Amino acid sequence: MSFTLDPRASYMMPAHFGPRPMHPNSSGWYHDVTAMTISYITDREKLAAYLPAPYEVDEEAVITVTYACSKNIDWLAGHGYNLIGVTAAVIHKGEKDTLRGTYTLVVWENLTDPILAGRELQGIPKIYADIPDHSLIGGKWRTNASHFGHKIIDLSIDNLRAPTEAELKLGAEMQEGRDNPMGCRYLAAAGGFGTAINEATLFPSESTVSEVQLGEGKVDWKHLTWEQNPTQFHIVNALAELPILGYLPAVVTKGSTNLVLPERFTRTLK
């Protein structure tokens, strides 16, 4: 008797060993998340060159770089991992869906399991990097990412302080209606040439914040050669060549995140 797929089950490669395990204790909750978020204004036309239609640059050409150290993750049986993600403020103008939110340009992670799940199931462009836990020395937060022993990016946030009530209110107002993380699920045809899947996706999440501080952030992209990082150098260099025209206030937060929302599931945008 040959293996057959159950249309009601969720599979990932290799599918022939059966559906993805669903343990009673598994959920989408990341219970302990420490994040550094640094946003900056860049050149509108240069950013637009990396946005596939029907995505368009939002009113301001804002790039956001987020580091997250996630621990006590339910679906990983309590294990954790680190990531550095890069998003752009966009508007999706499709035939049916018009949404303001963020377009994920790339996410580096230091664990294979979330990389595969994010790429196959959600259309998040995840790739691997070595990302150490952040350090806090003399009030300055630092972290970085590297691959094949060569730095990709350095991040830092300094001069941290508690936000005022007015700043908290303004931040909530600016975020209202824009919490729509979006991407493009692209899979090449077998052999690597041609297209099997090319679709816009929405992958919502929900976060709770227990601590927040504002500060001054700095992003230092590296320029790499093929010899230094043969599979990613073109990505890193493209991001490095987007000019930093001005920084927005940087943020350090602690809290939790839920990536599985039954009422707001990952879906294709039209």
Rank of each mutant, 00 (worst) to 15 (best):
K222V: 09
I137R: 12
A117W: 01
V219Y: 02
G177V: 09
P163Y: 07
T98G: 05
S135A: 12
G215D: 08
G194H: 01
K140E: 10
R178I: 03
I197F: 04
K140N: 06
T195D: 04
F148K: 07
D179Q: 13
A190Q: 09
H150G: 00
I124M: 14
T102R: 09
K126W: 00
A200V: 04
P132E: 01
V212G: 01
L121F: 02
G171E: 10
K96G: 02
A166I: 11
E216Y: 03
R178Q: 11
T104Y: 00
S207R: 14
L121M: 11
L155W: 02
W108D: 07
L214S: 07
Q122N: 13
E109W: 00
A188Q: 12
R119V: 07
K151D: 04
Y186N: 02
L99E: 08
K222N: 12
H223G: 00
E199W: 00
E176C: 12
G123R: 14
L170W: 09
G138F: 04
K126Q: 09
P125D: 02
G123V: 14
R185F: 09
L105S: 04
Y128N: 07
A162T: 10
A200Q: 08
R142Q: 15
D220L: 09
A172T: 14
L116W: 00
A145S: 05
I157M: 03
G149Y: 02
S146A: 13
M174C: 05
W226G: 11
D133H: 06
S156C: 08
A200E: 06
A162H: 05
E227T: 05
K93P: 00
A196Q: 12
I115A: 14
T102A: 12
L170R: 14
A145C: 05
S156M: 12
P132L: 01
E95G: 07
T102V: 11
L224S: 11
W141Y: 14
P204M: 06
G191H: 08
V106F: 03
T143N: 05
G139F: 01
S207F: 01
I124K: 04
F193R: 13
I153M: 00
D220R: 10
T208H: 13
T102M: 04
W108F: 15
I157H: 03
N144H: 14
G217E: 06
E216W: 00
Y186S: 06
M174K: 15
G94Q: 01
L170T: 13
K96T: 08
T164N: 09
R178Y: 07
W141T: 05
Y103G: 06
E211L: 15
D154H: 05
V106R: 15
S146W: 02
E173T: 13
I131V: 08
T98C: 14
P125Y: 03
R161C: 12
M174W: 15
V209Q: 03
R178E: 08
A200T: 10
A162N: 12
L160R: 11
A196F: 09
S205C: 07
D133L: 08
I115V: 14
K151T: 05
G217M: 01
D130N: 12
W226Q: 13
N144R: 12
A172H: 10
G217Y: 00
V106I: 15
E109M: 14
Y103A: 03
T102L: 03
C184N: 14
F193W: 06
E95W: 06
M182W: 05
E199I: 09
G138N: 00
G183Y: 11
P132F: 01
P125L: 04
I124T: 06
L136T: 08
L105N: 03
N180A: 13
L121P: 01
